[in-house]
Design a protein around this nucleic acid. Structure first.
Lengths: 134, 134
DNA sequence: CAGCATCCAGGCTGATACTG
DNA sequence: CAGTATCAGCCTGGATGCTG
C-alpha cells in the first residue's frame, strides 16, 4: 500500500545516516534545511504558479517580513532553485522564477504534500488520543 | 523529465497556501515542522531499519542529547508516527517502533532523499557559482 | 520598487544534576 | 535503563528606519 517498504528504502537511509555527522556535506540535510524553512516552501510553491516580482511575492504570501523574504530568496538563489532577473527600469523591477532545478523539486515536494493531506486526519486523531491519554 | 509539471501540482499548492495562515490546521505545515527537525528524520530513518530501545537509539544516532531524544520521541508519538511499548522488567525497558502511519511516511521521504542525492552536485555547483559572482 | 543595517525579544537546545 | 527538571547561551526572526 505504501509502494515501498523499509527494506527497499534502507540503502538510501543508510547513506543519509553515514553522512549526517558532516551536515554541510550531507545532501539530505541540505534539502531538509531548505524544507525546514516554511518561507522557502511558500516561496517555491508560489513561484510554481508563475514568476513573481518582489512586491508581488510579499503580497502573495502575506505575513512574511521583508527581511525574511529577501533572506530566503537569496538562499534559494544560492542553491540554484530560483533565478533572479533585474530589469533596469525606473523604478527598478526584479523578477524571480523557478530554475529547472527548482521545478524538478516540485515532484518530491508534491509527494510530501499529498501524503500530508491524505494522512492529516490520522495525525489529528493520533494527537487527540495522545492528549486524552496524558 | 520531472514527471509532474507545475500545472499538475497547482491544486495541491493552492490548497496548501489557502490554509497556511492557520499553521496549526495546515497539514503541510505540520509535516514540514516534523521534517524540519533533523532529529525526527534521523529517528524515523533509524527506526525504519528495526525497532530500537531508548539507549539503542541514542547510541545509533550518536550526537543527540538525551533531552532532544526524549522530546522528539514524544512528538513523533503524539503525531502517531511511532509506537512506544514499556516492558515492566527491572530495569525497565522501552521499545520504539514505527507505526503503520510512520512507515507510510517513508515513501515520500524516500522521494525527497532520492532527489537530494540526484541533485546535490547541481546544488553544490550553483553555490560555487553564486559565491564567485558575489 | 527593492532592498540593507540595526536592534532586540523569544524559543530552541545542550549541559548538568537528579529519580523510579 | 529510561527518563524528568532546571538553567544559561545562541540564534532565529520580527520591527523599524534608511537608501539607490
Amino acid at each position: 500500500m505504501t509502494g515501498l517498504d523499509a527494506r527497499t528504502l534502507a540503502p538510501h537511509f543508510s547513506r543519509m545516516k553515514a553522512q549526517y555527522d558532516d551536515p554541510a556535506q550531507c545532501p539530505v540535510r541540505n534539502v531538509l534545511d531548505q524544507l525546514a524553512d516554511k518561507w522557502s516552501v511558500l516561496i517555491v510553491t508560489t513561484l510554481a504558479e508563475r514568476p513573481h516580482r518582489f512586491g508581488e511575492l510579499k503580497r502573495a504570501i502575506g505575513d512574511i517580513s521583508q527581511r525574511m523574504l529577501t533572506q530566503t530568496l537569496r538562499e534559494l538563489q544560492a542553491n540554484g532553485m530560483i533565478e533572479r532577473t533585474v530589469f533596469p527600469t525606473t523604478p527598478p523591477s526584479v523578477e524571480y522564477r523557478l530554475s529547472p532545478l527548482g521545478r524538478s523539486f516540485l515532484t518530491p515536494l508534491a509527494a510530501l504534500v499529498e501524503w500530508a493531506y491524505a494522512n492529516h486526519p490520522a495525525i489529528r486523531a493520533a494527537r487527540e488520543d495522545f492528549a486524552r491519554a496524558a
